[in-house]
Amino acid sequence: MLTIQTPEAVMFWVLAPVAVLAALGMLLVKKAVHSALLLAWVMITLAIFYIAQDALFLGIVQIVVYTGAVMMLFLFILMLVGVDASDSLTETIPGLRPIAITAAVGFGGLLVSLIGRATLGHGAVGLDSANGAGNVQALAKLLFSTYVWPFEVVSALLITAALGAMVLAHHQRTVARPTQREQAIARFRGDSLGSAAGLPNPGVFARHNAVDVPALLPDGSAAPNSISATLKARGDMLDSAQFELGEVDNTVTEEK
């Protein structure tokens, strides 16, 4: 018969609300990177829950595979895709949000109510006897005996997924990459000669030459082309006006 020790109860009551809050935060934060970090925290919490529940192997796998590999993959793709309007939290489909929240609350309520009502017909058993020779050994015995066939199938699935990802990510070039010569011709044949000499560098003619500060045109206005589009979309562009000198010292001091 399973008895739950006090340390586990303490751990649960501390970590469980934090995990739920982190999950809620995932929905509410604006930046996807923050969502990913909160999710990583929920996963680590779950790993701790697994270990606490005598699933040592799964707990380690949760940390290594999920938190380590999968979440890093998510972050990696986030960096690749960059930032755009999809991060906005305003709802564009009318009526969807109230429906979704009402439905989800009803769903959660019913689920919790069902769990509360359910009975197994026996008390909690605990894994002390099943884990007798150690959790990893017992799992291995099951995996390579009863579940050997699903295990093999899953390995095939992994290979297929790897191949699928390669196929999807493979980009077939249909036209030759333009040479420098062709690019130069295109610049000069373009609508305007404004960019014929190349785009202006950021920070030129300014007191600040960081990449997030637009260059100034001769009339003193900011040159939009001088900043990377990603920085602009993310709102990370600084206003070059803040670096203007309040007063220019025009006096020429002659050195003696």
Partner: peptide, 26 residues
Amino acid sequence: TGFARSYAAFILIGAIVLIAAIWVVT
């Protein structure tokens, strides 16, 4: 609508109906 999210909402509603049915039956 063509929006994947509204289809997901329908799936959610379907799941509620399913759970509610289980709730009523049990």
